[in-house]
């Protein structure tokens, strides 16, 4: 019947509205350039269109981040750029103009960012999933295939090093 598909169309659109930006930011940190990140995210949503709404709906964020992550690492593997499972993956800068440089009042904020950049890639990833995307330990564990306690340990460690480095900077 025409029109019965409406909720579905709506659902896809809402998912796109809600997660387009977050997924792109996430993918960008893995693949390192906007074009590739866009391809990964487009592919993720195309897969969402083909997925069964009923089974995905209650854990949409986790589903999207998992698929997005897998697609991103798949792309890297294909291009032979790196082994995704090591922790010393070099995280490349966004090729977009740095917005921080545009706002004069951003100096102290960017310090935090600088510190985050020094963390091992895996910790950066977890920190982003947690504080940028609000995923729970459990969801992060599903997305990254780490155990929940490992997620907890890595996040705790990451926050400690951020704090320590910021304190050290304050002393200077």
């Amino acid at each position: 019947m025409p029109g019965t598909d409406k909720p579905d169309a709506q659902w896809i659109r809402q998912a796109l509205t809600r997660y387009e930006g977050p997924l792109l930011r996430y993918a960008l940190r893995i693949v390192g350039n906007v074009e590739a990140a866009r391809d990964v995210v487009q592919d993720t949503f195309v897969r969402l269109c083909r997925a069964d709404q009923a089974t995905v709906e209650d854990h949409l964020a986790q589903w999207l981040f998992t698929v997005c992550r897998n697609r991103a690492f798949e792309l890297l593997r294909k291009e032979g750029r790196m082994n995704p499972l090591t922790d010393d993956v070099a995280v490349q800068e966004s090729d977009q103009p740095d917005a921080l440089a545009t706002a004069a009042a951003q100096d102290d904020l960017s310090a935090v960012m600088q510190v985050v950049e020094t963390l091992p890639a895996r910790q950066q990833e977890l920190i982003r999933l947690k504080f940028q995307n609000g995923l729970s330990y459990k969801e992060i564990s599903q997305v990254t295939r780490l155990t929940v306690s490992n997620v907890g340990y890595l996040l705790h460690t990451a926050i400690r090093s951020v704090r320590r480095q910021l304190e050290a900077m304050d002393v200077c």
């Binding site: 896809i12 792109l24 930011r25 960008l28």
Partner: peptide, 26 residues
């Protein structure tokens, strides 16, 4: 800090292409 980070976008064409994909129930 993270909330203020650059938010990249898909291109309009990419969004359109996604919304043009038939979804399973449909």
């Amino acid at each position: 800090e993270f909330a203020g980070e650059n938010v990249p976008q898909l291109t309009a064409e990419q969004r359109m292409a996604i919304l043009a994909v038939p979804y399973r129930g449909f």
